[in-house]
Design a protein around this nucleic acid. Structure first.
Lengths: 238, 238
DNA sequence: TGTTTAATGGATGGATCCAATCACCGATGC
DNA sequence: GCATCGGTGATTGGATCCATCCATTAAACA
C-alpha cells in the first residue's frame, strides 16, 4: 500500500503504527513544520518503545515528512519557497502522466463522481473541507492509473506541501476560487471526452498557476510564530 | 547528500555505513535482484549489530533497492518488466525537467567534458565501462540542475534499473550502439546551442526508444538462474 | 493418498540497557 | 568585554536479550 494511506485497521507492526500516527499528526497540522520530535516523547505518547519510533521517523523521512540529523534529532520537515517551487515544477511533469495513464480506465461512474465533488467544492465555505475535497478530486482523476510508483510519488508531493496549500487557501481562496472551479470543470470535461492531450494541458496550467500564485506569497514560508523548535538543521539529507 | 553517492570517507553513523556498503554490493551486481538478505548475515559480514542493518534496510527500501516484508525478511528489489516500463515512462517526464533546469547553468567546460565522454563511449568495448560512462554523461547533463530533490529522484531511478541496463547492454549494445551515439551527439549539440526544447525532445526520444527496446526483451526479466531466494514477497510496499 | 492440522525451527520485531555524540553553559584567559 | 575552552546534561545511536511471527515439515486423519 502506498504511504500516506490511512489504514482503517491499525497495522500489526509497531513501526508502521507509529508512522501512521505521526503522519496523521503532521498532515492534520497538529505537528507544525519545524517542530522538533523527541523520540522518547513520542514513544511514551504512543505507548511504544523508542525503537519503533526511530524506524517510524526513518519511514516518514523517506516520505519527506520528517528530517533527521545524526546525533541531533528529528524535525517535521520544513519546506522553503524554493523547494516548494521545485515540487510544483516536478508535479507539472509527473501528474500529467498519472492523468494520461488514468483517463482510459475511468468509467462513467467516476465522471459522475468528479462532477459531484466539484459541485460540493463550489458550495463549500470551510477551508479545511475544501482542502479535503480538492485533494479527493485530483486523487480520483489519477485513481485508475496503474503505476503504483507514480501514485505514491504524487501522494508524497501532496503530503509535503499540505501545510502550504492550507495556508495559501486560507488567504486567497475566496477571490481566486472561480479560477480553480473553471480549471476543474475544464479538466473534467476533457476527461469525459477522453482527450488526454487537452486534459494534460489543463492540468499543467492548473498546477503552474498555483505555483506562480504561491511564488507571490513568500510570507507563507517565513518561519511562523513558533519558538520551541530549538535550532533547525541546515543540512537537508534528501 | 543524495542517496547513492558513494562516500569517500565512511560515515560515522553505522546505519549509513551499512547502507552504503549494501548499496555498493547491490549496484555492482554482487547481490543479485531477488536474493534474500538476512539481517544477521550482513551484521556479521560488516562487523556491526543487527540494529544498524535493520535501519540500513529501511534506508535502502526508501531508495527502492530493497523490499521488506514484516516478520518475513528483506530482499534485493526485483523489478519486473511492468515496473521497469513504468520507471522509464516517469523518466521520460522527469529527466527533461532536470535537463531544462541544468542547461542554462552549464559552462563551456562542461560541454567539452561531454564531448570527451562521448568520444570515450564511442571507443569503448567493455560493457561495464560503457555503463559507467553512459551514466556519467547523463549525470553531467543534469549536474547544473539546482533542484536536489529532482536529482535524487533521477538517481534513484537509475539505481533501481541498473541491473537491467547492464543485462540489456550486454545483449544488444553492439548492433544498436550507433543509435545511442547519434542521440548523445544530438543531445550535446542542442545543449551547446542552449536549445532547451530541442534537447528535451532528443532526451525524451532517447529514453523512450530504450523503453521500447527493453519491452522487446522480456526475457531479461525472467527469474534468473538462482535458487537460494526462498520465496519472493508478492506485496510490494511502495 | 491427499489434505489439513499441529509442532518446531529460524528469522524478524520490540524492549531495555549502555555508550557516544552534541549542545548548552559557565569559567577562565586574553 | 569578548572569545575560547572545558564540563555537564540531555538525546540519540548501538548492542544484547526476549517475544512474536511465519514457513516449513511432519504427522494424523479423512
Amino acid at each position: 500500500m502506498p504511504p500516506g494511506t490511512s489504514d482503517v485497521v491499525p497495522s500489526a507492526v509497531a513501526s508502521q503504527r507509529v508512522a501512521d500516527s505521526l503522519r496523521e499528526l503532521i498532515l492534520s497540522g497538529q505537528l507544525m513544520a519545524g517542530t522538533r520530535i523527541r523520540q522518547e516523547d513520542i514513544a511514551i505518547q504512543l505507548g511504544a518503545s523508542r525503537l519503533p519510533v526511530r524506524e517510524a521517523l526513518r519511514i516518514l523521512e523517506s516520505e519527506g515528512l520528517t528530517t533527521l540529523k545524526a546525533n541531533s534529532g528529528a524535525w517535521v520537515s520544513r519546506v522553503d519557497l524554493e523547494e516548494c517551487r521545485a515540487i510544483y515544477k516536478i508535479r507539472e511533469r509527473v501528474e500529467p502522466l498519472a492523468l494520461q495513464e488514468s483517463i482510459p480506465h475511468l468509467t462513467a461512474r467516476d465522471h459522475a463522481e468528479l462532477d459531484r465533488i466539484q459541485d460540493e467544492i463550489e458550495n463549500v465555505t470551510d477551508v479545511e473541507t475544501f482542502l479535503v475535497l480538492d485533494r479527493e478530486l485530483h486523487r480520483l482523476t489519477y485513481s485508475a492509473c496503474q503505476i503504483d510508483l507514480l501514485l505514491s510519488m504524487v501522494q508524497r508531493f501532496w503530503n509535503t506541501t499540505q501545510h502550504y496549500r492550507r495556508a495559501y487557501s486560507t488567504i486567497t481562496r475566496h477571490e481566486r476560487q472561480w479560477v480553480i472551479n473553471a480549471e476543474h470543470r475544464l479538466l473534467i470535461d476533457a476527461m469525459k471526452r477522453r482527450d488526454i492531450e487537452d486534459a494534460e494541458r489543463v492540468l499543467i496550467g492548473h498546477i503552474r498557476r498555483t505555483r506562480h500564485e504561491l511564488e507571490q506569497h513568500p510570507e507563507l514560508f517565513e518561519h511562523p510564530h513558533r519558538v520551541d523548535d530549538q535550532g533547525y538543521p541546515s543540512t537537508r539529507n534528501l
